[in-house]
């Protein structure tokens, strides 16, 4: 808490969605500050945002390994069984020459979640250690922009729909990879909830000024 209080108060802030000039407020952790004109969520401070970001991103980086390597869903049709994980979908699409779709699926379900967790870990680590790095602002920039393109939760819904479709014609098996994936999903959701971008940018500004 002492850290949040020691921040130099900015003269003004502007709402990113309606450009209203506002006096900055410092809401308590757990409270929210909305723009009075357009209702944009300006700030939602969290308790121990940096520590939790660090812990959750590390957990995510560990969980992403089994989620990618172990089989998630398997089916059995006419005696033949086939296992699938995040990669088999991509490689099957590649084999059918659907490379554009394959690349999109690869990016949004494997690579970008990994990159995002890595960036969150790097940023969290540097802020936790009070270590300045001239790449910090760039990492934060990429984290914010790539967050939208990492679509683990949409993929989870895709698994559910695919399983419902297959349930009628084949026997389904769920592997350990699926549980790791669900864990990763929960950790990812918690991470984006705990990472307070406004506070992170303030800390990055402080660190780069020194």
């Amino acid at each position: 808490m002492s850290l949040a209080l020691s921040l130099a108060p900015l003269a003004y802030v502007a709402c990113p969605e309606c450009d209203l000039l506002l006096n900055p407020v410092v809401p308590e952790p757990g409270d929210k500050a909305y723009c009075p004109r357009c209702g944009y969520l300006l700030q939602r401070p969290r308790k121990r945002s940096i520590e939790r970001t660090l812990a959750l991103s590390l957990t995510g980086l560990i969980l992403i390994v089994p989620a990618n390597l172990l089989p998630m869903v398997g089916i059995k049709i006419f005696g033949n069984s086939q296992d699938g994980n995040l990669w088999t979908g991509v490689s099957a699409l590649f084999k059918e020459d659907m490379w554009a779709v394959a690349v999109l699926v690869l990016l949004s379900s494997v690579l970008l979640p990994l990159v995002n967790l890595g960036l969150a870990f790097l940023i969290g680590f540097h802020l936790f250690m009070h270590k300045a790095n001239n790449q910090l602002a760039r990492w934060m920039h990429w984290y914010e922009h790539l967050n939208e393109w990492a679509m683990l939760e949409v993929y989870a819904l895709g698994i559910i729909v695919a399983c419902v479709k297959l349930a009628g014609m084949a026997e389904l098996r769920f592997g350990l990879g699926l549980f790791a994936f669900i864990g990763l999903l929960i950790v990812n959701a918690m991470l984006s909830n705990e990472l307070d971008c406004y506070f992170f940018w303030q800390r990055i500004a402080q660190l780069t000024k020194k």
Partner: peptide
């Protein structure tokens, strides 16, 4: 982003079946 649902579903079906 939720429109990607169909694409993901197809990628899973293609791999499994």
């Amino acid at each position: 982003r939720w429109s990607m649902l169909d694409i993901f579903m197809i990628s899973i079906l293609v791999a499994l079946v």
